[in-house]
């Protein structure tokens, strides 16, 4: 389906050239896309065409964009809230914000990277709004998240446990470690997403790791996981 559509797009690009405000041709083929999501130049072309259609008043263009990228954004927002209802609201907020900022997307980078930047800020804002105390985990909750058999730790349980641990950190520290641990982001990518300096992100990461280590030792995480040799 995408391959057929891509062929049509290539034909359109060859005949019509680039649209106003968006560089349809001449973009780099190899992207620094967020994680390995299979994002390539064909999908980028589709994105640019749909954005152009949307800017010309065609809502279906945005609908197609949404369908194409909602899973990736939902995946990221799941790191900010593990409540499905809240996560849905956050994803919705991201796409509504993206719709009204679409004119600011220049088309020189992958669209998902731009979306994830908005998503990270929405998630960060959500954390800042929340009371830190309310989000803190108790020891009982950690016990509930840990499997009775330590070696068979489920990814979902591990994510729950890590999310709970990170929720006890201040929002900026939590954000840096969440993006590092869950999204495998480099310090440079985090700095780009948040418009922070790279030095600041490195410093935060170092301090946050120290805090997390102290917290894990205080809660006896290793004993609970049975990972003490």
């Amino acid at each position: 389906m995408i391959a057929e559509y891509s062929q049509i797009v290539r034909g359109l690009i060859a005949t019509t050239g680039s649209g106003p405000g968006l560089a349809l041709a001449g973009f780099p083929v190899a992207f620094d896309s967020p994680r390995s999501t299979g994002y390539n130049s064909d999908v980028h072309n589709l994105d640019l065409l749909d954005i152009q259609a949307c800017l010309n008043g065609d809502d279906q263009g945005y609908h197609r964009l949404l369908r194409r990228h909602e899973t990736g954004v939902a995946r990221l927002m799941w790191r900010f809230s593990r409540d499905k209802t809240i996560c849905e609201e956050l994803v919705q907020e991201v796409f509504v914000q993206a719709y009204f900022s679409l004119t600011r997307y220049r088309g020189d980078g992958p669209f998902p990277a731009w979306l994830h930047r908005i998503a990270t800020r929405v998630g960060y804002h959500f954390w800042k709004q929340q009371k830190r105390a309310a989000a803190e985990w108790s020891l009982q909750e950690i016990d509930a998240a840990v499997s009775p058999e330590p070696d068979t730790l489920d990814p979902s349980q591990a994510a729950e446990l890590l999310h709970g641990l990170l929720s006890r950190l201040p929002s900026p520290d939590r954000l840096v470690l969440t993006l590092m641990y869950f999204e495998d982001c480099s310090t440079e990518q985090i700095a780009q997403r948040m418009s922070w300096t790279r030095g600041m992100v490195k410093m935060r990461a170092m301090r946050a790791r120290k805090k997390l280590k102290a917290l894990a030792e205080q809660l006896g995480l290793l004993e609970k996981l049975g990972w003490i040799q």
Partner: peptide, 18 residues
């Protein structure tokens, strides 16, 4: 914690359609 993160990255989030 790194090992925990490695396992956590494999988690598949629930289906969300907005």
């Amino acid at each position: 914690i790194e090992k925990l993160a490695q396992i956590a990255r494999q988690e598949e989030p629930p289906e969300i359609s907005v």
